[in-house]
Amino acid sequence: MSAAERQLRGDGPQSPRRMEETARRANLRLNAHEREVFRAEFGNVLHFLASLQETEDGPARVLPPCLRADEARPSLSQEEALRCAPAAVDGFFALPEQEGGEEDG
């Protein structure tokens, strides 16, 4: 078993606690069926992913800066952008109010 696999298997996402934690970070809520299916198959999927051997490819190359300067260009109007929104108020996207502050990061 490779080091990567041992690391993965130690507390991989197939464990209920880690799966819930990973789902929370991904902004997903899994139903009972999804949890069952993913727990059953993630061991094999991770075994497959962990089959990756270490590869030496020399030192990392430093690429020259290649980003262009930011500049404003014509784009969608505010009205066009809001037309697709599920809810909008006074020219802004509208969301349900969050009670109890903004924790839950």
């Binding site: 990973t22 999804e34 299916v37 969301l95 349900p96």
Partner: peptide, 27 residues
């Protein structure tokens, strides 16, 4: 609240394969 709305929207909108890959990617 907006946090739960986002999570519920994604959970209702994405199918199994998309969730599978998002979870693997997050991991």
């Amino acid at each position: 609240g907006w946090r739960e709305s986002i999570r519920e929207s994604r959970s209702a909108g994405f199918g199994m394969e998309v969730k599978r890959r998002i979870l693997l990617g997050t991991f």
